[in-house]
Design a protein around this nucleic acid. Sequence first.
DNA 1: GCCGTTTTCGGCCCGACTGTTTTCAGTCG
Length: 568
Amino acid sequence: MLNEKVAKILNSIADYLEMEDDFFRVKAYRQAAHTVEVLTTDIETIHQEGKLIKLPGIGQHIAGKIEEIIEKGTADFYEKLKEKYPVNFEELRGVEGLGPKTIKLLYQELGIKNLDDLEREAKRHHIRRLKGMGDKKEKALLENIVFARKFRSRNLLGEVMPLAEKIKKRIEALPQSRKVEIVGSIRRRKETVGDIDVLVTTPQPQDIMDYFVSMDLVGEIIVQGPSKSTVRLKDGIECDIRVFDEEVFGAALMYFTGSKEMNVEMRKISISRGMKLSEYGLFKKEKRVAGKKEEDIFHALEMDYIPPELRENRGEVEAAQKGELPLLLKVEDIKGDLHLHSNWSDGKNTLEEMVLGAIFKGYEYVAITEHTGSLKIANGLGEEKLMQQAREIDRLNDELENITILKGAEVNIDLDGRLDIRDEVLQEMDVVVAAVHSGLNQGYFDLTRRIVTAMENENVDILAHPTGRKLQKRKESEVNLNQIFDVAQETGTLLEVNSNPVRLDLRDMNVKRALEHGCKLVVNTDAHSQNQLNNIQLGVGTARRGWAQKKDVVNTLPLKGFLKALKD
DNA sequence: GCCGTTTTCGGCCCGACTGTTTTCAGTCG
C-alpha cells in the first residue's frame, strides 16, 4: 500500500506551498492528500485502472504527481520544493506561534532550518530585528521551543480522556456553568489527540474564564480573552475553553468537534442552499434557522445526524444526505469481553477479581485468556496449568449465577505459524485467541503466512491485535491485510479490535476495510487489571470510527448466539 | 490546483486573539 506515502508527499507539498502565497493551491493539495488517506483501496490499483482523476479533489495535475510517486518513488515538483526550502517544516511547525509565513521569513533572513537554528538565533536576539517580529515574539518562541522538543507527538486518547473528564467535572461543579462538553478529537474518539477542547454555556463568562486559568492543573496561560482562553496544563497538554450562548451551543459543538474537513464540507452544503454555517449557527440571510442543538442543524440541511466518531469527511456527509449512515455499535451493546488476563499469567488482579469486574460491567459472559507456554516473559501457562485453570473456572461457574466464564487462552503464533498449545488441549477451550507477540519483523511474506496458518487452525476463534502496532512506539507490521481479511472471512476467524489505549488495533480505517471484506469483529479490552476493563469504550470508539454496526460485532450477541457463532 | 442543479471562469470557511501595527498580518482551531 503506497497510500500513506502518497498522502504524506502531497501533504508535504502543501506545507511548502503554504510558504508561498498560493493559499488555494495549498487547499487543493491538502484535499487530495486527504482523499488518498481515507481510501480503503490501493492507490496503485486505482492508478492501473486509470481512475485517479475520478477521485474527489484529484485532477490532471495532481494525478500526474501521484503517478510519478507510484512509478519512481517521488515527484519532481516535490524535490524542487525541498531544494528551495531545505527546512524541517514539520519540526518548526511544532512550535506554538510559528506558522508558514514566519518559517519562510526565518529561513530567508537568517537561514533557520530547524529547532536548533531557531534557538540559537533567538538567543542572539537576531529574530526581534526582523519585520513583524519583536522582543515578545522572540521570547515566546524561545519558550515554546522547549515544549516543541518535549511534546513532539500527539497524546494517547486513553491517557488524555481521564484528564479531560476531570476538567469537565470541575467546571460543571461551578454554580455559574450550565452546559459543559468536551469537543475536538476527543469527542471524535481519535486514537491520538492534540489538545483538550472544552465548551461551556454560562451567564457569567468572566467567572468561568477566571476559574479556568487558575486551576491547579494549569502550568501556564497562553491566551486569555473574554470568550476564549488557552492554557498549558502542568503535564504539557494544551487545554482550550470557549464560552457560548445556549442558543448557539449546538452550532459551537459541531464546529469545535470537527473534523475541520467535515466542517468545510458542511459549510459548502450550507452555501449551496443559500445559507451560512458558523460556530454561531446556521443562517439564512441574517436569520438564524438552527443553532441550539446539533441535530437541528443537520436536519435543517436535510441530512441525518452524524455521530462524532464518523465526522472525518470519509463519506459520512454523503451517507447522511442519503439516509444511509450505519447504525453504529454502542458500548451498551457489548455483552462480554473475550480477552482478559489475570495473575495466573501477567495480569495484576486475581481471576475472581477480573470476573467481578466483568459482572460489575453488566456482562453476560467473559473469557479468561491467559498467555501460553512459549511466552515466558508474560508468565505463559503450559498445558497442564491451562487445564488446572479450566477446572477452577468450572468451579466458579457453579458458584456464580450472574455471569458465564468461558475457558480460553491467548495462544502465541510461533515463527512457523504453529500454535504453542496442542490442538487436543485447545479443543477443550471455549474461546481461543491467537496472536503474534514476537518476530514481527521477520519479513513481509513470513508474517502474513504465519498469521494465515494460525487462522486456518479450526480451533482458533479470534485473531488478536492483528497488526501488532503500538502507538508512538511500533508501526503496524507489514502484513498483507487484504489477504488476512480474505482468509478471516473464509475461515470465519473473528478479528479483534483491541481496546488497549496503546494498541487500538485494528485501527479505524482497517476496521472499515475488514468490514468491506465481509469480516466479523470482536471488541475486547485485553485487560491486565480490573480497571482496564473500562477501556472497552476506547475499542468501541475505534470500531465506531470504522463504521462498525452492532451486527458486525459478535460479542454483542447473547451467550447462546455467541457460542453458536463461534462454532459456525 | 480543483470544480460546476446559477459557473469552463471565478470562486474556494471564518472568527478570536496576539503582537506589532498606526489599520493589519499571522496563527490557531
